Computed example of a mutant assay.
Amino acid sequence: MDFTYLIVILALMTMLAVIVFAMVSKAKVENRREDSDSKKSTLAPDKRSDGEPVDV
Rank of each mutant, 00 (worst) to 15 (best):
residue 1 M to W: 04
residue 1 M to D: 14
residue 2 D to Y: 01
residue 2 D to T: 12
residue 2 D to V: 02
residue 2 D to I: 02
residue 3 F to M: 12
residue 3 F to G: 15
residue 4 T to D: 14
residue 4 T to V: 12
residue 4 T to K: 03
residue 4 T to Y: 02
residue 5 Y to R: 06
residue 5 Y to A: 15
residue 6 L to I: 15
residue 7 I to T: 14
residue 8 V to S: 10
residue 8 V to G: 03
residue 8 V to C: 07
residue 8 V to N: 07
residue 9 I to T: 02
residue 10 L to K: 04
residue 11 A to E: 02
residue 11 A to M: 07
residue 13 M to G: 08
residue 15 M to F: 13
residue 16 L to Q: 01
residue 16 L to V: 02
residue 16 L to C: 06
residue 17 A to M: 09
residue 20 V to L: 15
residue 20 V to Y: 04
residue 20 V to Q: 02
residue 21 F to G: 12
residue 24 V to Y: 09
residue 24 V to L: 15
residue 26 K to L: 15
residue 26 K to Y: 10
residue 26 K to G: 15
residue 27 A to W: 04
residue 27 A to N: 07
residue 28 K to T: 11
residue 28 K to R: 13
residue 29 V to W: 03
residue 29 V to Q: 05
residue 30 E to T: 14
residue 30 E to C: 06
residue 30 E to M: 09
residue 32 R to A: 11
residue 32 R to H: 08
residue 32 R to Q: 10
residue 33 R to P: 00
residue 34 E to C: 05
residue 34 E to D: 09
residue 34 E to Q: 13
residue 35 D to G: 03
residue 35 D to C: 08
residue 35 D to I: 06
residue 36 S to D: 13
residue 36 S to T: 14
residue 37 D to Y: 12
residue 37 D to R: 15
residue 38 S to A: 10
residue 38 S to W: 08
residue 38 S to V: 08
residue 39 K to Q: 13
residue 40 K to G: 07
residue 40 K to S: 10
residue 43 L to W: 13
residue 43 L to C: 04
residue 44 A to R: 08
residue 44 A to G: 04
residue 44 A to L: 06
residue 45 P to I: 09
residue 46 D to E: 11
residue 47 K to P: 00
residue 47 K to N: 12
residue 48 R to H: 06
residue 48 R to Q: 07
residue 49 S to A: 07
residue 49 S to Y: 03
residue 49 S to W: 08
residue 50 D to E: 08
residue 50 D to M: 06
residue 51 G to M: 06
residue 51 G to K: 06
residue 51 G to A: 15
residue 51 G to E: 15
residue 52 E to N: 09
residue 52 E to M: 07
residue 53 P to M: 09
residue 54 V to W: 00
residue 55 D to F: 13
residue 55 D to T: 12
residue 55 D to G: 10
residue 56 V to Y: 06
